[in-house]
Simulated assay, not measured.
Amino acid sequence: MPEPATAGAAAVQVPKAAELVAAQLRRQIVLGERVEGELFPPELKLMTELGVSRPTLRQALRILENEDLVRIHRGRNGGTRVSRPATATAGRYLNNLLLFQGATLDDVHTARLLLEPAAVADIAGTLDAAAIAELRSSIADAQRQTDAAEVRRIGARFHVQLVELTGNRSLTLFAELLTGLLDVPMERHNIDRLEKQIPSQAAGLLDHHSRVVDLIEAGAAREAARHWREHLDAVHQRLKETVNTSTVLDLEI
């Protein structure tokens, strides 16, 4: 008697109905077909629209809630609202994944060395006057600040701006994620020490920012990349003064 055609074949994982519904709604959210804060239709209407049962719909919404793509408010006046993807959420997932993989702050620093100097070289000599002015405005804003946390925030944003100016969305998101990974340890470092370093060491790092803009404007790609690599090394050295950067990333660093 012949064996069934499927005998010996690897089992194929068939997506559950709830996963398919979640994928459909996820696509609508990501593509902007459902906007931030939009209230989903009542449960019965949404069941009809999607052609699914109540348990399937609820499970699909729980999947999206776990992904921070919807917010579910229960009760008489409750409902489900759209919550667009956030970099902070992705950063938390990335931090957990890197922690599991045994990554360190030194690893994060190396990633920045591979990303940011290359971005600087790419934009050198290509920016218009408005983009250069925006970079200089960011530096001036940081120089006016006396609050350590605000100086750090503006400085971190400047790093992302440099990558953002390449026009590559994937690299920009990666730069934002890397900045988020450094945020907590850098914040602790600055709270403890930055007040004592303004205007000396902190101002020196801001001078590095001004210099890289000069080199970018002049179109000196190689020198700009080298300068920015040295700047990143200086920032990392500051962090190493108070944090063991060779240990595995910790959520509570």
Rank of each mutant, 00 (worst) to 15 (best):
A149E: 09
E150S: 04
E150G: 00
E150R: 02
R152L: 15
R152D: 11
I154N: 04
G155M: 04
G155C: 02
A156F: 01
F158W: 04
F158M: 03
H159A: 04
H159F: 02
H159N: 12
V160R: 10
V160W: 04
V160N: 03
V160T: 08
Q161K: 15
Q161C: 06
Q161D: 14
L162S: 02
L162Y: 03
L162F: 01
V163C: 03
E164M: 03
T166H: 07
G167M: 08
G167H: 07
G167N: 06
N168D: 14
N168F: 01
N168Y: 01
R169F: 08
R169H: 08
S170R: 13
S170N: 11
L171M: 04
L171I: 00
L171P: 07
L171G: 01
L171H: 05
T172L: 02
T172S: 10
L173A: 07
A175Y: 13
A175C: 12
E176C: 05
E176R: 08
L177H: 09
L178K: 07
T179K: 03
L181W: 09
L181I: 06
D183R: 10
V184R: 09
P185E: 00
P185D: 00
P185S: 00
M186D: 04
M186Q: 02
M186F: 04
M186R: 06
E187C: 11
R188W: 05
H189K: 00
N190W: 14
I191K: 15
L194E: 01
E195C: 01
E195W: 04
K196F: 05
K196D: 11
K196H: 13
Q197W: 14
Q197P: 09
P199W: 01
P199C: 01
S200M: 14
Q201W: 10
Q201C: 05
A202E: 09
G204A: 04
G204H: 10
L205V: 07
L206I: 07
L206Q: 08
L206N: 11
H208I: 00
H208D: 14
S210G: 05
R211P: 10
V212L: 01
V212F: 03
V213A: 07
V213S: 10
V213G: 10
L215T: 08
L215F: 09
I216S: 06
G219K: 03
G219P: 09
G219T: 01
G219I: 00
A221F: 11
E223C: 03
E223L: 10
A224S: 05
A225M: 04
A225L: 05
H227G: 00
H227T: 01
W228K: 05
W228R: 08
W228E: 06
R229H: 01
R229Y: 00
E230Y: 06
E230T: 08
H231G: 03
H231F: 14
H231Q: 09
H231E: 10
H231S: 09
H231R: 11
H231W: 14
L232K: 03
D233E: 14
D233L: 11
D233I: 10
A234R: 12
A234L: 13
V235R: 07
V235P: 13
H236N: 09
Q237H: 14
R238E: 15
R238T: 14
R238V: 15
L239M: 13
L239G: 03
K240C: 13
K240L: 05
K240S: 15
K240T: 11
V243N: 13
N244R: 07
N244C: 02
T245M: 02
T247G: 02
T247F: 07
V248W: 03
L249Q: 10
L249F: 09
